[in-house]
Design a protein around this nucleic acid. Structure first.
Length: 666
DNA sequence: CATTTATAAATTTTT
DNA sequence: TTTATAAATG
């Protein structure tokens, strides 16, 4: 029927052709999962399914785009771009813009990101007087985590607190009160947080009035990375499914790494019960990596025992064993990695085919310095993001005020920017502006008697902000022009607030303006930015230094789904992988093991794992000692599948006596 | 006296 | 880059 079907293996073909029922594809790392899914979409399109009746849920917008692009090529169909594709949150946003009224959502709502959500909880916390001196009430970020866990895992508050936040158990009543007010406040201000997007979608899908209508819109629901879905997402999929709307879920329980976000492979393991009669296809042939790399990955995951049994079978040839390098210290590691990267490039592997992976964003700090020193271009995925910069948030807040004048958090930021206005005055102003009502903006802009009194010191700033906002009201000014106008007003404010760094920040504003040119309206710009934030430094300005080749640096989480010819995994020491923060329970430790597994399975031909023996830490003030690092506990028993190397003075540190002493530190 | 501003300390992973 | 504490300010 299709020539490309011939190129699939029998299991892949079965997954692509399966019809008339639900389907679970248990797809090991490198087993051609993306390709299978893309082929399935192409097959559906070619068989006459209308693209807008296919729903493709992926983990990032980028993943959806790539998959649909491939499907479009295969099916030679223009329509692939009309497939509903994106993350759960982005699709929820789209659906709710259309049908939100059915679940009590007013149109024009704005979306709170993680930070906003914590800030609003902080506001409520303050209003209730729970933050006062002498009281030890959970902080806003803790509250945010508890809330999110409760919602996404669908667990009772008591249970969440008992299990994961036992030190907060005395404040249960206070927490309940905060949450109640938080929920009410969101409603009143017409804002939704990430969790709400899912909850409203589920409500829409399970309601007896809107549910059937919603379900009738889709013939096929494809879900990628199913092992990372949370309880609400699993419910959503189930409630969208039915006879005539078939679910095809793809996942690998060995790669479940989003437990901290309440994702759980449980939903994947329970798929057969939830969808009786579902077809289950297992893909365990690894087309990505050489046999020694697959062996290393298998060795690491073998010690975890639950889940769908699958041991990857390598298909490609190759002899080169992965390396495990103990480095004298971080500097030695950076030097070693740079040398290795350049060496591979000499041998013909372009930088783009090489990646350096790590557990947390700042693990690459040292390496970034060395790369810069040697003029090796790179882009970094994960870690601190563009949108998290305070100045970017400031400008976006100005836009948000224009979009939704009840957006209290936006007001909070903007008012606090003015000279002489601190937290207390901000609150008073928000109160007197009557931010709950849409007239707040007119009240702020107009010079009628109902405008609140501002501190005298703020006069200049105030005038600048007011004039800029006034110029942007209405829909006739293009988003980019608004960013430009508002940014101009911010120049003096930023110079005062962010001394020394304001030129960098102004460059970011220009960046933001350039991004805005791609959007037809302010509302689209804001929504898409929060739901699909630029994930890498490179998403913004294109390749750095105008080079056409660059090295990829990425957190392991952000590397999910990626593959490179050469992969360096750095800081693979105990305390980093597994992270010290994750030693609370066996479950968390197992997730760290899977994280390592994900990292190892990104490599095609060459895998180099390294860790520094010596850490210079300043754990406490005036502490200038170093401690000794040990290789990750996950790499001790599987060490035989690696070639071990020592770099720098590492030989010294591996001295048996010093090693013994080092153990005392750990 | 309340509030703002200056100073120092600590920071997983992300839709 | 936020957040607790201290000094400065209106």
């Amino acid at each position: 029927m299709f020539s490309w079907l011939e190129e699939l293996n029998p299991e892949q073909r079965r997954a692509v052709l399966h019809d008339g029922g639900h389907l679970l594809i248990v797809a090991g790392a490198g087993s051609g999962k993306t390709r299978t899914l893309a082929c399935r979409v192409a097959r559906l399109l070619a068989n006459g399914t209308r693209p807008e009746r296919i729903l493709l849920l992926t983990f990032s917008r980028r993943a959806a785009r790539e998959m649909l692009h491939r499907a479009g090529q295969l099916a030679e169909a223009e329509g692939a771009r009309r497939v509903w594709g994106g993350t759960f949150h982005a699709v929820a946003n789209r659906l709710l813009r259309q049908h939100g009224a059915a679940v009590g959502l007013r149109s024009g709502f704005t979306v709170l990101d993680q930070g906003d959500n914590a800030d609003l909880l902080g506001l409520v916390r303050h209003d209730l007087g729970l933050g006062e001196k002498g009281r030890r009430f959970p902080k806003k970020d803790t509250l945010s985590s508890i809330y999110s866990r409760m919602v996404n895992a669908q667990e009772k508050l008591v249970d969440v607190v008992e299990r994961s936040y036992p030190w907060c158990r005395d404040d249960l009543d206070g927490i309940k009160e905060v949450f109640a007010r938080y929920v009410a406040r969101k409603r009143a201000r017409n804002v939704v947080d990430y969790d709400d997007l899912l909850l409203y979608w589920r409500a829409l899908a399970t309601s007896t009035t809107t549910g059937p209508f919603l379900r009738s819109g889709f013939d096929h629901i494809l879900v990628d990375e199913f092992q990372d879905t949370n309880a609400v997402q699993a419910d959503i999929v189930a409630s969208m499914a039915g006879p005539g709307a078939w679910v095809a879920a793809v996942g690998d329980d060995a790669q479940a790494i989003y437990g901290f976000r309440s994702g759980s492979a449980r939903h994947m393991l329970e798929f057969p019960e939830r969808y009786p009669g579902a077809e289950i296809v297992t893909l365990d042939r690894n087309y990505r990596s050489t046999p020694p790399i697959v062996a290393a990955a298998n060795a690491v995951i073998a010690e975890s025992n639950d889940g769908f049994a699958k041991c990857l079978r390598a298909v490609r040839p190759g002899e080169e064993r992965p390396a495990l390098a103990s480095c004298a210290d971080e500097l030695a590691q950076s030097t070693f990695v740079c040398d290795s990267v350049l060496e591979h490039r000499e041998r013909g592997v372009p930088l783009r085919q090489q990646a350096v992976l790590f557990r947390t964003g700042h693990h690459s700090d040292g390496l970034e310095l060395e790369l810069a020193r040697r003029n090796i271009p790179f882009v970094k995925y994960g870690g601190l993001k563009f949108l998290e910069g305070a100045h970017v948030k400031d400008l976006l807040s100005l836009l948000r005020i224009l979009e939704n004048p009840s957006d209290e958090l936006a007001w909070l930021r903007v008012l606090g920017l003015l000279e002489g206005v601190g937290p207390a005055t901000t609150r008073r102003l928000i109160d007197e502006l009557g931010v709950a009502e849409a007239e707040a903006l007119t009240r702020f802009l107009g010079d009628g008697g109902d405008r609140p009194r501002f501190p005298t010191a703020s006069a200049t700033d105030l005038a600048a902000v007011r004039d800029a906002l006034a110029d942007c009201v209405g829909d006739d000014v293009p988003p980019a022009a608004q960013v430009e106008r508002l940014g101009r007003a911010c120049v003096p404010l930023f110079a005062r607030r962010y001394p020394g760094t304001s030129s960098v920040r102004l460059a970011d504003l220009e960046q933001l303006r350039a991004m805005a040119t791609a959007y037809p309206s302010r509302s689209r710009f804001l929504a898409e930015l929060t739901l699909d934030p630029p994930s890498a430094t490179g998403d913004l300005a294109g390749p750095p230094h105008l080079d056409d080749d660059w090295l990829v640096l990425s957190t392991i989480h952000s590397a999910k789904g990626g593959e490179w010819q050469v992969v360096h995994l750095i800081h693979a020491s105990d305390g980093n992988i597994p992270s010290d923060m994750a030693l609370g329970s066996a479950k968390e430790v197992e997730e760290e093991r899977r994280l390592l597994y994900v990292a190892l399975t990104r490599a095609r031909d060459t895998l180099v794992v390294s860790y520094p023996m010596r850490y210079y830490v300043r754990r406490h003030v005036l502490d200038d000692v170093h401690t000794y690092g040990q290789r990750s506990r996950f790499l001790t028993r599987s060490a035989s599948v690696f070639d071990t190397v020592s770099v720098g003075e590492a030989q010294l540190a591996e001295d048996p006596v010093i090693g013994e002493v080092a153990a005392l530190w750990l």
